[in-house]
């Protein structure tokens, strides 16, 4: 029973992967490219920077980077809380 379930799940996931691989778009040709073209054309004049990725990450989509910084801060606070040293008088 358990082995039959495993085989069924494997076949289901494999079928989805095969369908996705056969209907995949060619590499480097997205279906909607308006924002990409806007960034590539206007990046060097609006934000005066050559690295378009950094311009997108820190300027056009800066709110995402704020969330990433918050995630890192939460990770540091979590590790601090997990590995804190308990003093003798608090025990």
């Amino acid at each position: 029973m358990k082995k039959a379930l495993t085989v069924a799940a494997f076949l289901l996931v494999a079928a989805f992967l095969v369908v996705a691989a056969t209907t995949m778009r060619p590499f480097g040709e997205p279906s909607h490219s308006e924002m990409d073209d806007y960034f590539l054309v206007n990046c060097q004049t609006e934000v005066v920077a050559n690295n378009v990725v950094t311009a997108v990450v820190f300027d056009y989509r800066g709110f995402d980077t704020l969330g990433e910084a918050t995630v890192l801060f939460a990770a540091v606070v979590g590790v601090l809380a997990l590995f804190r040293t308990v003093r003798e008088d608090e025990r």
Binding site: Q44, V48, A49, N50, A55, F58, D59
Partner: peptide, 15 residues
Amino acid sequence: DPAALASGGVLPLMN
């Protein structure tokens, strides 16, 4: 000049 080191506005400071 987008190729100069002192360009990009607040991007270097944020980096």
